[in-house]
Design a binder for these strands. Sequence first.
DNA 1: CGAAATTAGTAAGCATGCTTACAATAAGCT
DNA 2: AGCTTATTGTAAGCATGCTTACTAATTTCG
Lengths: 149, 149
Amino acid sequence: MNKSDIAAQLGFELHTTARLLKRNFDRRAKTHGLTRARWQVLWILNRNEGMKQAELAERMDVAPITLTRQIDLLEAEGLVERRQDPQDRRCFRIYLTAAAAPVLEILQGLAAETRSQALSGITAEEQQQLMNLLGRVHQNLSREEVVSD
Amino acid sequence: MNKSDIAAQLGFELHTTARLLKRNFDRRAKTHGLTRARWQVLWILNRNEGMKQAELAERMDVAPITLTRQIDLLEAEGLVERRQDPQDRRCFRIYLTAAAAPVLEILQGLAAETRSQALSGITAEEQQQLMNLLGRVHQNLSREEVVSD
DNA sequence: CGAAATTAGTAAGCATGCTTACAATAAGCT
DNA sequence: AGCTTATTGTAAGCATGCTTACTAATTTCG
C-alpha cells in the first residue's frame, strides 16, 4: 500500500470508527430516549449555561439549523429552555432545567461504559496522542473555505 | 479537566473531526454529483470486483440496507451493475462499469486535495500512529454485542 | 436619521446512517 | 422428503448532518 493509499484509508477509518462509537453509545442510550448528539448539547451546556444558539453551534462546529432541531427536541423533553436575551431580541440563551441533572448522571454512566469498551487497551498517553492528532486535523479542516490546494 | 473528561472529549473530537472531513470532501465532490459514502463503495469495489452486497456491507461495517440504497443510486448513475450469482439466486455480485473509471480518477484527485488540507503538518509517522490508534478503537467497537462492562 | 449589510434563528429538502420487519431462497436436520 | 433455521436483499420510518433560502432584529455608515 503506497503512501497516498494509507492516507485515503485513514479517512475511511476515521469515519467508520466515529460511526461505530456513535452506534455503540446510541444503543445504550436508546432506552432513555436520548442520543449521542443530544448528549453533547447537554454536556456543553452543563458547563456553559446561557450560551446563545449561535455560540453553541459555533462551538460544536455544526450548522445553526442542525442545532435548532436538537434544541427543539430537548426543549420538548423538558431538559433545556430558551430564554429571550433582554439585550438582543433576535437571540435566545439556552439553559438546563432541573430535570436535566438526573439525565446527565445517567448519560455520564452510559458514556463511561462506551468509553471503557472503546478505549480498552489504550493507555492514557495514547489517548492524549489521539486527542492531539485529531485536534490538529480538526484545526486544519475548520477553516471555512474549501482550499483547493 | 480530569481523566474521564478527557476521554469524553475524545469521543466528541472523533465525531467532529470525522464530520468535518466528510463535509470538506463532499463540498468538493458535490459538483460531480458524488459523495464520500458513494466514493467509498467505488474505492472498495475497484480492488474487489464481484463482491456480494452482504460482503461489502460487512467490510464497511454498515447495515445491509444502508448499502442497498448506495448501490441503487450508483446503479442508477450507471457506475456499477448488479449481476445475479449463478450459484445462489438470493444474492447479487457487484461490478464496476466502464463509466466508473474516469469518475474514480476525478474522485482520487479530490480526495488528495482534502487529504492534503486535513493532514497538513502531520508527519507520515504520525499518520501511521493515528491509523493504528483508530484501528484499535475500531476493533474494540466491532464486537457486535453491547458490552455493559 | 435611514438604507445597506450583518447576524440569529428557522424552514424545506436532500444524504446517510440506524432499527425493525419482511419475502425469497438456501442449508441443515430428522 | 419436509420442517426449521439462517442468509440475502429490501422496505418503512426515524435521527442527524448539510445546503440554500427566508424573516426579523441589530449594527454600520453615508
